[in-house]
């Protein structure tokens, strides 16, 4: 039943995968639709594997992302910490939502994240946005059910294999 040791081995790989997905260039207009992979990762992690120190983990993951992406040191950390905190707060409820409801909640979280980004950036200089700016929140939301089903399936298989 317990997947923690396996998860320990998988974790570094998952982190690398999420970073690579974040860096992955997308052609043309798809660029604007790129989901916030790090956020989805943190949401999934906080829902599936609750543990103390999630917020700290989100912080470190965010700092790594800031180094990779050249954003202000601490920007992604801020975003992910907020996300991990909210999910942690409402975890009991979110976990037992039916999938469609959970998807909507994830959409709201991602939308909130876009607002946080807007807030952080506007401290520096006035930011101009358009409708496209909000697109990543919707793509992330639409991806969520797919991700959950795929990851659950993956877990089932691993469980079978490990007996």
């Amino acid at each position: 039943m317990n997947l923690v040791p396996r998860a320990g081995a998988l974790m570094p790989l998952s982190i690398l995968l999420v970073y690579v997905l974040t860096l992955l260039p997308l052609p043309g207009a798809l660029l604007y639709a790129k989901p916030f992979w790090l956020g989805l990762f943190i949401i999934w992690l906080s829902l599936e594997r609750p543990r103390n120190g999630r917020i700290g983990f989100a912080f470190c993951l965010g700092l790594g992302a800031d180094l990779l992406l050249g954003t202000w040191f601490g920007e992604h950390a801020f975003r992910l910490v907020v996300m991990a905190f909210i999910v942690g707060r409402f975890r009991a409820r979110l976990r037992f939502f039916p999938l469609w409801q959970q998807t909507l909640a994830v959409g709201a979280l991602l939308l909130n994240d876009r607002i946080v980004v807007l807030m952080l950036r506007s401290f520096d200089a006035p930011v101009s946005t358009d409708a496209l700016y909000w697109l990543p929140a919707s793509t992330g939301m639409l991806l969520w059910p797919v991700l959950v089903v795929a990851l659950d399936d993956l877990r089932q298989r691993m469980r079978v294999r490990s007996g």
């Binding site: 700092l63 202000w72 040191f73 601490g74 910490v81 907020v82």
Partner: peptide, 10 residues
């Protein structure tokens, strides 16, 4: 604590 740290870093 973490948010303050992030803001301080930024």
């Amino acid at each position: 604590v973490y948010l303050t740290a992030a803001v301080a870093l930024m």
